[in-house]
Amino acid sequence: MNADMQDLLAFLAVVRAGGFREAARTSDASASSLSEAVRRLEARLGVRLLNRTTRSVAPTEVGTRLVERLLPALGEVEAALDVVNHYRDNPAGTLRINVPANVARTVLLPIITPFLKRYPDIRIEVVVEDSFVDLLAAGCDAGIRYDDRLEQDMIALPIGPRTQRFVTAAAPEYLAAHGTPRHPKDLLQHHCIRGQFAGGAMPVWEFERDGETLRIDALGPLLVRQGAAFDLAVGGALQGLGIIHLFEDWLRPHLDSGALLPILEPWCQAFSGPYLYYPGRRHLPAPLKAFVDFVRQQVPSA
């Protein structure tokens, strides 16, 4: 491959991963070789493409413009090469999916395990991110979210359970010490373990019963960022720190074991299941097409 192209790919890998070490983990190159490739590219172009600090790496304005022009061009190259895939007995390549943390934990695993066993030449990269992102700008082929109202030219396909619930629960130790809430408003007098979006906002807890909807903004001793940090929140609830309000599937093992006890069950709020979304272009890359077809086979017929 031409050296210029190799340096461009190294630059893109660093931008997508958000750092040299992170990019090295997902490529065959070392962090130092990626850094040297970006330096060569910057020297050749005569501009700085990345702002580097001890904690982060981010594209400059000109670096962002270069990424915006490169991604569609590389997408066309990948699409051209992917034509070969259609002449193979088994599709091959990499499928990059952007998903929220709870989807990675409760929805995706039961699907990708049989999928990868059926298609051993396909590799799936899962990017866990709870905010809604621009798929193409993030270098992803598809995403999973909980809303089928998507951007123009995107297709939404049901994936996983079609109905899910939030469950409110606490450890027996906590309930024995503080009592069991009988109404959602009682939570205002309890220790509640809360979540927080990356931007700082805290989603309120919603409850619904007989057409009545309540939004509770309770306080507590532990606040965690949405996503994988919820493992810490669950751990706190298991140790009697307070009451947790989370996806039922996430808490199910602890509910089944009795380590957590459900409360306010008549008020549990159900919501529609997630959707796989992807660009509605005519020719999908072979790994994505195989995954879409596989997911379609899992959706129960109406």
Score class of each variant (00 low, 15 high):
Pro158Gly: 06
Ile159Glu: 06
Pro161Trp: 03
Arg162Lys: 06
Arg162Leu: 14
Gln164Phe: 00
Arg165Ala: 15
Val167Trp: 03
Val167His: 01
Thr168Gly: 04
Thr168Phe: 03
Ala169Gly: 02
Ala170Phe: 01
Ala171Lys: 04
Ala171Ile: 02
Pro172Gln: 08
Glu173Gly: 01
Tyr174His: 09
Ala176Tyr: 02
Ala176Asn: 08
Ala177Tyr: 00
Ala177Glu: 07
Thr180Cys: 12
Thr180Pro: 06
Thr180Ser: 12
Pro181His: 10
Arg182His: 15
Arg182Cys: 14
Arg182Ala: 15
His183Arg: 14
Pro184Gln: 13
Lys185Met: 09
Lys185Ile: 06
Asp186Ser: 15
Asp186Gln: 13
Asp186Pro: 13
Asp186Glu: 14
Leu187Ala: 12
Leu188Thr: 12
Leu188Ala: 13
Gln189Arg: 13
Gln189Leu: 15
Gln189Gly: 14
His190Cys: 09
Cys192Asn: 13
Cys192Asp: 11
Ile193Asp: 12
Arg194Glu: 08
Arg194Phe: 13
Gly195Ile: 15
Gly195Phe: 12
Ala198Glu: 12
Ala198Trp: 14
Gly199Ile: 10
Gly200His: 11
Ala201Trp: 13
Met202Asp: 01
Val204Arg: 07
Val204Ile: 04
Trp205Ser: 12
Glu206Arg: 08
Phe207Arg: 09
Phe207Lys: 11
Glu208Tyr: 08
Asp210Pro: 08
Gly211Pro: 01
Glu212Gly: 00
Glu212Pro: 00
Glu212Asp: 00
Thr213Asn: 00
Leu214Ser: 09
Leu214Glu: 07
Leu214Asn: 07
Arg215Asn: 10
Ile216His: 10
Asp217Lys: 10
Ala218Asn: 09
Leu219Lys: 08
Gly220Cys: 00
Leu222Glu: 04
Leu223Val: 04
Arg225Pro: 03
Gln226Trp: 08
Gln226Arg: 08
Ala228Cys: 06
Ala229Leu: 07
Asp231Thr: 09
Leu232Phe: 08
Leu232Trp: 01
Leu232Cys: 05
Ala233Gln: 03
Gly235Trp: 00
Gly235Tyr: 04
Ala237Phe: 03
Leu238Gln: 05
Leu241Met: 10
Gly242Met: 05
Ile243Arg: 04
Ile243Asp: 01
His245Gln: 07
His245Cys: 07
Phe247Tyr: 08
Phe247Val: 01
Glu248Leu: 04
Glu248Thr: 02
Asp249Leu: 06
Asp249Thr: 03
Asp249His: 07
Trp250Ala: 07
Leu251His: 03
Leu251Tyr: 01
Pro253Trp: 03
Pro253Leu: 05
His254Val: 02
Leu255Tyr: 05
Asp256Arg: 00
Ala259Gln: 12
Leu260Ile: 01
Pro262Trp: 00
